[in-house]
Design a protein around this nucleic acid. Structure first.
Lengths: 340, 340
DNA sequence: CCAGGTTCTGCAAAGGTTTGCAGCAGAACG
DNA sequence: CGTTCTGCTGCAAACCTTTGCAGAACCTGG
């Protein structure tokens, strides 16, 4: 039903190759012929079939972007930045959501493989060897994950987490809880590594809690456990969990930050809006999206495999959800400064 | 580089058609042959090329989903519901974002056209005739938009808006502001239509403000104008605008709901969390996502063009951002009930 | 033993496009 | 006027599959 290159050729009395060139290499065809062909194409409503084109050129001008959970406000800024970057380069981005399920993730990579020129894998939950294997099927750029030999852009969440712990220790906390994220998360391991080191060198005691769903529900679910654990401060895997935790603690009659301090990670827009405003580690998500697109397209351009790994800096944003622990409260308040 | 059907055929000593059938019609091939072929395929890491398959079958098993703004929390529930519904039917969903730009929207439809079996168009900003024309290129299902002859699922926002206005009038408001959304939005027109009728029949005065960007920034931008306009209540195009407006009014020293009542539309998760909790019109977004996928896939199945239009009910959720207007405050409070 | 059926496999066309090669006409040049 | 070059166009193979058709091998029943 839709017009093909052949219909246009017939209508304008030229060979299909001329029609093809009219669209993909206009300078090779006589201006007169060109405009005749274009007129016929317009008439018939002809549009080149991108799938057929891709079959022979090997370039689809699409890139896939796989995230764990579209409903997590952490992702949209990254996605939008990636989209606009891709658009400038005449590429389109197809976004899909894995529902935090590694099986779905693998499924999707296979499904996308031949329909895109590469895939941006955001915070994948797959294990390293599987990722490596899949990367032989389709060019991959990882975001917030490092696998030897694969290009990646990561946000230095370890550094941010370290700053967060030092901030808490500086306030006088010794018993600190660490709310783990989903299993398979590289970010999760980075946080744990950095935090463990920071805590050890300051004689603070760390209590791990998790793994958990990286959502508000996941945070809320462990509120009771946090309260009973005796910690005076908590670093959560992400802002969503921190927010869920704070709300549930509030429901249990535990005040934040008076009784327990809470720090999140990501600095989603919501964190600035809740009360108490959340102290958190800010991630440069738009920059990450742009960088990932650049790496992928550059890699697609040259054939040589770029395996660069870009690290973006994070930053601790101190707001109102952290304060000295109850016991030492007055003493420390005298010595500390209040910052935004 | 990646293995093709031909490599598998060579390796297992059969014709390519047999390999093809092994994957797309296994019952037609001898179990013995089949397992041999499968073993070779596994060995070579062969995966059928979905693009090539689509070229000949005409079925890609993908569906496109185009939204105006991924960062608007209104969309994720719809998207996730659509994705899970599609997954059950062995389809994949590709999501893209138009940045509220009609030109990008058209671009995207063309780009997606041949790579999907149909497109779900969410709150499109395109005009009717263009939509109609594009629908001849690729099957379309509209969400929150009605165009004669095209299948659509809409949420009855008109009814919800009417309830909202009646609620405000019931509280004693006579001067009501209507914060318009983006131009090109069908929802916007529906709201205006319903609200105008409701206001007329109750002798309330309506002040239109807009069009505006349907974001928090858009809501914040008109706060000053709202304050000066003399209205005592506002119905916003969506929750995001309502929230932005409330925050900015707060910054201007105008209290909600004491000085001005505000009602939103959508009932995004955030609306339950801000203070005052937002009175709003709840939309059944997951149901809409599922219904749209069903309509599209059913339409793809039978060849006959289904043009059904499904309407889903909305609901007014009364929370804390609405109250009687300042003047009549005490009098009416005595006569009214407080509900969640 | 033969007619008819079943089960499996191969052949080749088709789907819509791109692209290296070759051919052709006319221009430029000596 | 012959040669070389330039600009344009057509030819046909290629990309990776699917699928209608036909043939081969085998079986069943009469």
């Amino acid at each position: 039903m839709p017009a093909t290159i052949r219909d246009v050729a017939r209508a304008s009395g030229v060979h299909i190759s001329t029609v093809s060139r009219t669209f993909s290499a206009p300078h090779l065809v006589n201006p007169e012929t060109r405009s005749r062909v274009l007129a016929c194409a317009e008439n018939l409503g002809y549009r080149p079939n991108r799938a057929a084109r891709a079959l022979i050129t090997g370039r689809t001008h699409n890139v896939g972007l796989i995230v764990a959970d579209l409903a997590n406000p952490f992702f949209p800024p990254l996605i939008k930045a990636a989209e606009s970057q891709a658009r400038h380069r005449d590429y389109h981005i197809f976004v899909t959501d894995t529902n935090e399920d590694p099986a779905v993730e693998e499924e999707l990579i296979h499904a996308l493989a031949k329909q895109v020129d590469g895939i941006l894998l955001c915070s994948p939950r797959l294990n390293n060897s599987l990722i490596e294997q899949l990367s032989r099927e389709v060019p991959l750029v990882l975001i917030n994950r490092q696998v030897a030999g694969l290009p990646a852009v990561v946000m230095d969440v370890g550094q941010g987490a370290r700053l967060a712990i030092e901030h808490l220790i500086g306030l006088g906390h010794h018993q600190i809880g660490l709310l783990g994220g989903p299993r398979g998360s590289w970010t999760n391991r980075e946080i744990r590594r950095a935090v463990t080191a920071a805590a050890r060198s300051a004689d603070a005691v760390l209590t791990g809690i998790g793994p958990n769903q990286p959502t508000e529900a996941g945070g809320a679910a462990v509120a009771e456990q946090v309260r009973r654990s005796g910690v005076t401060a908590v670093l959560a895997y992400n802002d969503l969990m921190a927010i869920g935790l704070i709300e549930e603690l509030d429901a249990l009659g535990v005040r934040v930050p008076a009784d327990i301090s809470v720090v999140g990670i990501d600095d989603i827009a919501l964190s600035r809006r809740i009360r108490p405003r959340l102290t958190t580690v800010a991630n440069p998500t738009p920059a990450a999206g742009r960088a990932a697109v650049d790496m992928l397209l550059q890699r697609a351009g040259d054939d040589r495999r770029t395996t660069a790994q870009v690290t973006l800096q994070t930053e601790l944003v101190i707001r109102d959800s952290t304060a000295p622990p109850p016991a030492t409260r007055t003493a420390v308040v005298l010595a500390s400064h209040v910052k935004e």
